[in-house]
Design a protein around this nucleic acid. Structure first.
Lengths: 230, 230
DNA sequence: CCGGGGCATAAAAATAACCTCAAGACCGCA
DNA sequence: TGCGGTCTTGAGGTTATTTTTATGCCCCGG
C-alpha cells in the first residue's frame, strides 16, 4: 500500500457518518461514504482496504450485506452497532465480520481495531511470489540478490549485478550502450562506453562457460548488448 | 489443521482458568493452561493455534508477554481483561493482540471471536514460525531470547540480539544497510552505516568460529549483509 | 600493407567501503 | 553518587570495488 488506506464507511445517520469520516481522516485514512446497504455494496467494488459498517441500516440488513460481501471479497469488515446483545455479535462475527464494536465506543479504540484489521489484511496480501529468473545453467534470484551458475553461487559486485539485472529484465531485447550506462551508472556516464566493455567482460568471465564465446551476454556491434535466454 | 485447534490459556486465577478450560473444551478445542507469564511464554513454544491471555497477571505484564510473543510468533492473541479503559485496549492491540474482551463477557461471544481469530490464521496458512532456529553450531531460541554456540550460551546485548534476529528471520536474503538500520535502530538512523560495522563485528566475534572469515554473517560489499544458513 | 575504429582483456591506480580497536558518553540501578 | 554494562564515536589499517591506463585483436577501407 503506497497510499493511505481507504476505508468505506456504511452508515445511514448523517451525523454519525460525518463523525466517522472526520475521525478516520484524522487518522490518516482516505474515506468513502455510503448511506445505504445497496450503496455500500456498490462502493465495495472499488476495493477499499477496510469496511466500517453500521449494523442498524434501514434498507436491508447489515448482516446480509456482510454475507454478500464475503461471497467475493475478503476485505476486513469492522462492525459498529448500537445493539450490544451477545447474539447480535455472534451472528455478525460468524457472518464474516472481523470485529464488532458496541456504541458508544472510544475513537482511539476504533482506530486501534482498524489498525489490527489492516495488519491482518497486509499479511495475507503480502504473500507474493519471489521473482527468480532461470535460463540454462544461469539462475538469478532477485529477492535474495543471488546469482548461481550450475547451482554454484557467484559473487557479483554492485555494478556487475545492476548491469546483469538490467539485461535480464529486458531479456532478448537489444539495449544500447547509452541505455545501459544510464541505468547502471546514471545520466552523467552516458558516454563512458568503455565501462561497459570492462564490466561485460567481468560478467562473461563469471557467468559464461566460455567467456570468449558468450552464449547469453551478446555483443551487438555498433549498437549495444543483449541478453539472450536459452 | 487435522486435529482440534489447541488454545493456550494464560490466566492466574484458578477459578477463571478452569472456567475457560471447560468452555473451550466444550467448544471442541484442546486446551493448554499456564498460570504465569513466564509459563505462558514457555508453553507458547509448543505452537498453540491461539493464545487466550488475561492481562492482569501477577508476574510481569501481559503487555510485555504480548510483545515478546510477537517477536517470533504470529499466533493469534485474544486478550481478556477486567480493565476496560480505552488506553488499555489500545496498548494491547498495538502491542500485537488481535482482539480484546472486557470482563464480564459472554461465552458465546468469546467463542465467536476465537473463531474469527482462527479464521484469520487459517488464511495466512502454513506461515508458522519455529520458536528456535538452528544451523550448524548456532542456535537461536526466540522464545527465550537466548543464543547458543555449540551448546554454550552466548550473551548478546539488546542491539546485537535485534540485529541477529532480523538477519536470521530473513536468512539467505541480502538485507541492505538501510533496511537493517531501520529495523534495529529506527528510521532516524537509516544512514548510520558505521553502527552496522561495529555491531556486525561484535556478532562475528561472539558467534563465528573465525570472526575474520565468517561462515554465516556475510558482508555484501556496497549493499548490506546477509545471514547464510548451513 | 598500413591505419583507425570498435571491441576485448589485463592490470595498475584511485577511490570507496569495510574492519578493528578503544576511549568516552550514556543509562539504569544499587 | 558510583558502578557495570551498553551505546556511540573516531582513527588507523585493510580489503573490495571502481576507474583509468595500456595492450592486442579483428575487420574494413584507403
Amino acid at each position: 500500500m503506497n497510499e493511505a488506506p481507504m476505508v468505506l464507511v456504511i452508515e445511514d445517520e448523517p451525523q454519525i457518518r460525518h463523525f466517522l469520516h472526520s475521525t478516520l481522516a484524522g487518522g490518516g485514512y482516505r474515506v468513502l461514504e455510503a448511506a445505504t446497504a445497496a450503496a455500500g455494496l456498490e462502493y465495495a467494488a472499488r476495493q477499499p482496504d477496510l469496511v466500517l459498517l453500521d449494523l442498524g441500516l434501514p434498507d436491508g440488513d447489515g448482516l446480509m450485506l456482510t454475507r454478500r460481501l464475503r461471497e467475493w471479497s475478503q476485505v476486513p469488515i469492522v462492525v459498529v452497532s448500537a445493539r450490544g446483545q451477545e447474539q447480535d455479535k455472534v451472528a455478525a462475527l460468524d457472518a464474516g465480520a472481523d470485529d464488532y464494536l458496541t456504541k458508544p465506543f472510544g475513537v482511539q479504540e476504533l482506530l486501534a481495531r482498524i489498525r489490527v484489521a489492516l495488519r491482518h489484511a497486509a499479511r495475507v496480501g503480502g504473500a507474493v511470489e519471489e521473482p527468480v529468473f532461470t535460463t540454462g545453467a544461469l539462475r538469478v534470484d532477485f529477492a535474495h540478490r543471488q546469482v548461481f551458475v550450475a547451482d554454484r553461487e557467484v559473487h557479483l559486485t554492485p555494478n556487475e549485478y545492476k548491469l546483469l539485472s538490467v539485461l535480464v529484465h529486458k531479456a532478448g531485447k537489444v539495449l544500447t550502450h547509452r541505455q545501459l550506462l544510464k541505468e547502471v551508472w546514471g545520466l552523467a556516464y552516458a558516454n563512458e562506453n568503455h565501462y561497459l566493455r570492462v564490466y561485460m567482460g567481468q560478467l562473461r568471465h563469471k557467468l559464461e562457460a566460455d567467456p570468449a564465446r558468450p552464449a547469453h551476454l551478446l555483443t551487438e556491434p555498433g549498437v549495444g548488448y543483449r541478453f539472450k535466454p536459452e
